[in-house]
């Protein structure tokens, strides 16, 4: 089949960008979406032109590196599917597609379809961990964790950090991403000591990074390739509210030496 692509081309951050039109010819329905772009790129290189830059790595839907807007839908038309796992059989001959990078104030375009998602790393740095150093912790079975809590924590921990939730949100909010980590750790006993401090700090960092606020559109949940539920946002808000209401100033009591 043959398709027409309108691809956002932008040589560098801060440079002007525009859509360019390309023809993708003899596309096999067995190809993945990124393999279709590989073929277009081979043609561009052979013609002496700059290939379309896009992020990708594992190509099996788990590393979270790939992602683009395909005719207005984050990761394209198939639910619960990353761009790399989308196959061309989801399209038909003659389709015209618009490919754009994630659009959000907090994600700047690096080149073409590649964006800077380092804000996600900084949100994790603000508290998305358990402060335990490598060493000799107690035996792994010392604290039983109910199957339901463990399963629910895993549901939240399945986030791949691709950024589709932010791109799909009309507010450009990172609430689903942030809530997933706050919930994963907050559901487990190991995450309790820092639970409320974590919620305060990660939410504050999210705001600092210029992500928008959540007004419960629910677009993030629809776009999420891992099916992460917005129930976790409600959970984050509960933790945040409680933390904000009960937070005390952190004091270091020194001088024990």
């Amino acid at each position: 089949m043959n398709l027409t692509l309108h691809v956002w081309r932008q040589p560098a951050a801060g440079a002007a960008g525009k859509f360019e039109r390309y023809e993708a010819r003899d596309v096999s329905p067995e190809m993945s979406f990124l393999e279709m772009l590989d073929v277009v790129n081979e043609g561009l290189i052979a013609a002496g032109q700059a290939p379309i830059a896009f992020d990708h790595d594992c190509r099996e839907g788990i590393c979270g590196m790939c992602g683009m807007m395909i005719s207005g839908a984050a990761h394209g038309p198939m639910k619960m599917t990353t761009t790399c796992q989308l196959h061309m059989r989801s399209f038909k001959d003659g389709d015209e597609l618009w490919l754009e990078p994630w659009r959000a104030r907090a994600f700047t375009v690096v080149r073409d379809l590649v964006v800077d998602r380092s804000a996600f790393d900084r949100i994790i740095q603000a508290g998305g961990f358990v402060s335990v150093n490598t060493g000799s912790p107690q035996d792994a079975n010392a604290i039983p964790i109910g199957k339901q809590e463990a399963d629910e924590a895993m549901d939240a921990a399945a986030c791949i950090g691709c950024g589709a939730c932010v791109a799909a949100c009309p507010n450009g909010s990172a609430s689903l991403f942030t809530a997933a980590k706050i919930s994963h750790l907050g559901l487990l006993p190991q995450g309790q000591p820092e639970r409320y401090r974590r919620a305060l700090r990660m939410v504050a960092q999210m705001d600092l990074e210029h992500f928008g606020g959540c007004t419960l559109f629910g677009e993030c949940q629809e776009a999420c390739p891992k099916g992460i539920s917005i129930d976790f946002i409600a959970r984050m808000n509960r933790d945040y509210l409680r933390a904000a209401a009960t937070a005390r100033e952190e004091r270091a009591v020194g001088g024990t030496g």
Binding site: F129, V130, V132, T134, G135, S136, P137, Q138, D139, A140, N141, I143, P144, I145, G146, K147, A150, D151, A153, M154, A157, H184, L185, L188, Q190, G191
Partner: peptide, 20 residues
């Protein structure tokens, strides 16, 4: 390794009784 990962909050599969 397993002790360390559990302490970090890695959500390993569990039995109903809460054991790994």
């Amino acid at each position: 390794i397993i002790d360390q990962c559990v302490a970090q909050g890695v959500p390993f599969a569990r039995e109903y009784g809460g054991m790994l």
